[in-house]
């Protein structure tokens, strides 16, 4: 590459910096207006492209919102973790007392609530439908239960395995440890299902990222292809512009604007579809939520997310157009 010589930048006419800058913005504005009117002149092709872009952007965005809504529905994990320790039904009073003091002595355990077998039976009998059935039983089939409230900060760190939340691992380790104690029949981790849900949500987010990437690549191809067709139509014009001294940037500009507009319009359509879908679904969702005594409402894209989607559309459109034009510019470069 030869160095750019200052005298090779000959302007046909001396201009002040301010005038040049004004000319530059005026040119950008004129180019943008031209690009809009070109897209409008070719409405059918333009709208087809925009719709395909919209579909490709709606899919991952809708999935994202689904995951976000499910995540919002799940109760937060910050609440104190609880463990239910079920004693063996045959355990003696002395064994139970020993188990209780063993559990209470552990540093991870903040509090122990004891529900004896008799208490559990009485609670169950209080439900009218069970009363007669329980009377038939020769002995109390229910185990004694210790409900432990855990102090999460006291959990001892196990070997951290990659990719798993440490807390979940430690809880699982504690559960196994307690289950091995004498007179213990079973230990249930109350928050385990929550952990699992969180893990599923995490996985869904990763899948989503992959899908979004693939679909965005699709958007690049669709916009790139449309811009390429526009370039083919205007090949002569590009050659003329190049021959009268237009820079690559000058040639590129209208196509970059076209790509950005396709991306912008596609993203705007996707956004409209998402808002519409949220509004329509919410009618049913609020009814369903009321049955579960929940105030849950589906949320659509927030304004930040909306802006992000629009920006992504523009960005992808610009990248697609850039590559499409670069190809053509190389084809008419001198040998």
């Amino acid at each position: 590459m030869a160095k750019a010589k200052s005298n090779s930048r000959r302007q046909p006419h001396r201009q002040s910096g301010g005038a040049l800058l004004r000319g530059y913005f005026a040119h950008h504005w004129a180019t943008l207006r031209q690009s809009v009117s070109r897209l409008w002149a070719d409405r059918l092709q333009s709208s087809l492209t925009a719709v395909v872009v919209a579909i490709a952007m709606t899919l991952p965005a809708a999935l994202y919102l689904t995951v976000e809504n499910i995540a919002a529905l799940a109760p937060p994990l910050e609440q104190p973790a609880r463990l239910s320790v079920y004693a063996e039904v045959a355990a003696s009073g002395a064994q139970l007392a020993a188990l209780r003091s063993q559990l209470a002595a552990r540093p991870e355990v903040a509090a122990v609530d004891y529900i004896s077998a008799d208490q559990a039976l009485a609670e169950l009998a209080a439900s009218a439908s069970f009363a007669t059935a329980l009377d038939q039983l020769p002995s109390n089939p229910l185990p004694a239960l210790y409900e432990l409230t855990l102090n999460l900060s006291m959990l001892t760190a196990a070997e951290p395995a990659a990719g798993q939340p440490i807390v979940a691992q430690q809880l699982e380790a504690l559960r196994a440890e307690l289950a091995a104690l004498p007179a213990v029949a079973e230990v249930e981790l109350d928050s385990l299902w929550l952990q699992r849900l969180q893990a599923i949500i995490e996985l869904a987010k990763q899948l989503l990222a992959g899908l979004a990437l693939v679909l965005l690549l699709g958007v690049v191809v669709v916009i790139g292809n449309t811009v390429k067709m526009a370039i083919d139509h205007r090949r002569e014009e590009i050659v003329v512009v190049k021959l009268v001294g237009g820079t690559d940037a000058y040639v590129r500009r209208p196509f970059i604007y076209a790509g950005a507009l396709y991306g912008l319009v596609g993203a705007a359509l996707a956004l409209a579809a998402l808002w519409l879908a949220t509004a329509v679904l919410n009618a049913g969702v609020t009814d369903l939520a009321r049955l579960y005594q929940s105030q849950f409402v589906l949320r659509g894209p927030t304004s930040v997310e909306a802006l992000l989607l629009l920006a992504t559309g523009i960005g992808v459109g610009v990248v697609a157009a850039y590559f499409a034009v670069a190809d053509q510019l190389r084809a008419i470069a001198p040998n």
Binding site: A2, A4, K5, S8, R9, R10, P12, K242, L243, V244, G245, G246, T247, D248, Y250, A333, P334
Partner: peptide
Amino acid sequence: ARQIPYYRR
């Protein structure tokens, strides 16, 4: 390549 446009003017 980047100097060509200015030459062509």
